[in-house]
Design a protein around this nucleic acid. Structure first.
Length: 735
DNA sequence: GCACCCCAACTTTTT
DNA sequence: GTTGGGGTGC
């Protein structure tokens, strides 16, 4: 060891016993069960710093994998703060980023062109639609989105078309599309996200030399958010680790939290944690349970909720911070009342000096934000919604990027199709079909086909113009910097002029200008990493696909934070509102039909609760507008799972507020009043009335039908679902 | 080629 | 209620 004990001490000082144990584990595979707010990122980065500082590994001898670019960046930032090292050349990144890097380095062995492009989801979908047209597939029977999901989940299981089971005609056709899709991608030199991983995995399994090279290089492999890995990612990690006797047996330091696994819908397998324990003979799991974020009332609530899950590795968060405030529960009359409650509370907090940035409003589904946004807007409370379109996903940016892609490689059919007639230049569906037809006949790219048409004369004015435009752009681009090329792509293409003429095109033009800025800063940040002869274009295109950019600009201003619970994972706020805690929304009704769906919903609730540092509000509404209809829900079972002693109920009575927003009130009344006027006398229960049933428990009256002698009543029993009961026999009581 | 209309969907999402 | 995609008509 070349480093003095003193500086080692400073690196390790302030860690608790468990954190210290994790950071200084000997050379062996380890599973760190890191609870919410337990200092997970700190442990991970300190582990890396410690390994380097004690001379056990050089910065280039380790591999650190994350899921998001944000997490990777954060890790590098913290690392440079701890150690005076140059992080360039270190393999710290996302699964996709690292696979991309490896495939670029070995593109020949991976059978890819050096300039292979990465399809984002939108590109992939349009590629599939295009293929399905060629193959004459009925998109009623095979919705392109489903086909895409099928292809991606196959790849995420590590499967190619040849190895997929298909016993019925439908799945056989599906498999056929999968196979043709892969051929099309190969022809066009493009890879989708899942392909990046699968291609990389296959390359390493096939090519012993390359595999050995990396296995010898990466003695230490560190994985963040291990509970979110899918099957292929786990297989990929095993390859790097080297599992067989002859292989080096590198060790994996896996950090994760099974209780925060909320991404099974996109292929994540919590089970990888248990498999890892067995496969890598993990001796003991290090549990980080001391929480540095929340007061204990909040943690106790979270612990109580999650303890209802059966399949857990087991963990209980604790804090030395004291009980803190009770968890506040508000029962709202309807969604609008819920929103106005939140607005009132936020105002109070803000007046008391809380920064809006420190307050988050969480919901299960994006649709719920509308009502709240409306309330915030009319009360002039600044807010920021996370989610939605990101920079490189905006239409105008994708158009400009398509021109750049064509400069880079005109055979890029996807890019060509996107802009061949945008801005419009008289190439309609007819001429496009002809072009695609002749490309198919000649078995070449659309660009080649277009060139041939122009060469043969009578290509049509539009097509001739397009070919000339791209050729001119390519000519102009020679010797230009990336920034200048980007300018060309937005101007010569006619994009800017097009948006200038549009009524509401200012934002789009501003975005196009922002794209030029993005190119400038990309070059500033990466110029020394680029090869000497590279103008950075391929790298910039990759950057755009792999890092779609921040969701929204002006992050600086103080604003209330609105986001889904999923988007809140990994974040923390001084005060958190969790809204819409009703059966059907949270847990979401769809989840109840899924395997272990309820447990995942409960983990979602757990994630939501553990975001709060100091104050936590839970709210539910007796009725809310959903899909254009009023729905009556009962309180989420997750609320019942919190011990009463931790709660403070702000209004347990369901009396409607007199100050209700009038238009909603009317629409609410008209819905129920319309029916009750028909059969008022026969109806003993009002719609929205909470009732209890001997067998089904608590419920809410949703609707009814029939006449006085034969009336049926529909009740939402939450966990038991919607039930029709005959009035005559059902023994209902007011709840 | 484009504007307009209708109908269906509608949980969560990173790369 | 809203949005987006697809189809139709000028």
């Amino acid at each position: 060891m070349t480093i003095s004990n003193a500086s080692q001490d400073s690196l390790l000082s302030g860690l608790n016993d468990k954190q210290l144990e994790a950071v200084t584990l000997p050379h062996q595979s380890a599973l760190i069960l890191a609870g919410a707010g337990s200092g997970k990122t700190r442990v991970l980065t300190t582990r890396i710093a410690w390994l380097i500082q004690t001379g056990q590994v050089s910065p280039t001898g380790l591999l650190a994998v994350t899921f998001t670019n944000k997490a990777a960046k954060e890790m590098l930032t913290r690392l440079t703060a701890m150690l005076p090292i140059n992080t360039r050349g270190m393999w710290v990144g996302t699964f996709h980023g690292l696979c991309n890097r490896l495939l670029r380095a070995h593109h020949r062995e991976a059978l890819l062109p050096a300039t292979f492009q990465i399809l984002d989801s939108a590109d992939q979908l349009s590629a599939i639609k295009r293929l399905m047209k060629v193959m004459n597939v009925d998109d009623e029977k095979f919705p392109p989105k489903q086909v895409m999901g099928y292809i991606n989940s196959c790849k995420e299981e590590g499967l190619r078309a040849q190895s997929v089971d298909a016993y019925d005609p439908h799945s056989q056709r599906m498999r056929e599309i999968f196979e043709e899709y892969d051929k099309q991608c190969q022809r066009e030199g493009v890879v989708d996200f899942a392909e990046l991983l699968l291609r990389c995995y296959e390359l390493l399994s096939r090519d012993t030399n390359i595999r050995q090279h990396y296995q010898e290089r990466f003695k230490y492999i560190l994985v963040d958010e291990f509970q979110d890995t899918n099957k292929l990612q786990y297989m990929w990690l095993k390859l790097f680790a080297g599992m067989s006797k002859e292989e080096p047996n590198n060790c994996i330091f896996a950090v994760g939290d099974d209780d925060q696994s909320i991404y099974s819908f996109r292929g994540a397998r919590v089970g990888n944690m248990r498999d890892f324990e067995v496969d890598f003979k993990v001796q003991n799991i290090v549990k980080l349970e001391e929480n540095y974020r929340s007061h204990s009332n909040i943690l106790d609530a979270a612990n109580a909720i999650i303890s209802n899950n059966k399949n857990r590795l087991g963990k209980n968060l604790w804090t030395s911070a004291g009980a803190g405030e009770p968890v506040r529960v508000y029962q709202a009359y309807n969604d609008i009342d819920e929103a106005s409650f939140i607005v009132d509370e936020v105002k109070i907090l803000h007046n008391d000096g809380w920064a809006l940035n420190d307050i988050a409003l969480l919901y299960r589904s994006n649709a719920q934000s509308r009502v709240i946004e409306h309330a915030l807007f009319s009360h002039n409370i600044p807010y920021r919604v996370y989610g939605g379109l990101r920079f490189f996903e905006r239409a105008e940016i994708k158009h400009a990027m398509a021109y750049l892609r064509l400069i880079n490689n005109p055979e890029d059919d996807i890019a060509l199709l996107r802009v061949i007639n945008f801005p419009t230049r008289g190439i309609g569906a007819r001429s496009l079909e002809q072009l695609q037809e002749s490309a198919r006949a000649q078995d070449c790219s659309l660009w080649q086909a277009a060139i041939n048409k122009v060469g043969n004369g009578r290509p049509g004015k539009g097509l001739e113009g397009f070919v000339a435009l791209i050729k001119q752009m390519q000519d102009d681009a020679k010797g230009l910097t990336l920034t200048e090329m980007t300018e060309i792509a937005t101007t010569i293409s006619g994009l800017k002029n097009f948006y200038k003429l549009e009524k509401e095109g200012e934002d789009r033009i501003a975005n196009l200008d922002e794209l030029i800025n993005a190119a400038v800063s990309f070059m500033n940040n990466n110029s020394d990493a680029l090869e000497d002869n590279s103008n950075g274009l391929t790298e910039f295109l990759t950057h755009a696909s792999l890092e779609a950019g921040e969701h929204q600009a002006d992050v600086g201003a103080d604003a209330l934070q609105l986001m889904t619970v999923h988007a809140a994972k990994g974040l923390e706020f001084k005060a958190v509102f969790i809204s819409g805690l009703e059966e059907g929304l949270c847990p979401h009704e769809n989840s109840l039909y899924e395997n272990n769906g309820l447990e995942e919903e409960r983990r979602l609730m757990y994630v939501a609760v553990t975001r709060a540092r100091q104050r936590l509000y839970l709210s539910h509404a007796q009725s809310r507008m959903l899909h254009g209809q009023i729905r009556y829900g009962i309180a989420s079972r997750f609320l019942d799972e919190i011990p009463d002693a931790l709660l403070k109920r702000l209004n347990s009575k369901q009396a409607p507020k007199p100050s209700m927003s009038s238009n909603y009130d009317n629409s609410y009344q008209s819905a129920s009043a319309a029916r009750s006027s028909e059969q008022k006398s026969a109806m003993p229960w009002k719609i929205g009335q909470a009732v209890s049933h001997a067998k089904f428990g608590q419920g809410v009256v949703v609707s009814y039908e029939g006449n006085a002698s034969d009336m049926r009543i529909q009740i939402n029993f939450g966990r038991e679902g919607l039930k029709w009961l005959a009035m005559e026999y059902a023994k209902l009581e007011k709840a």
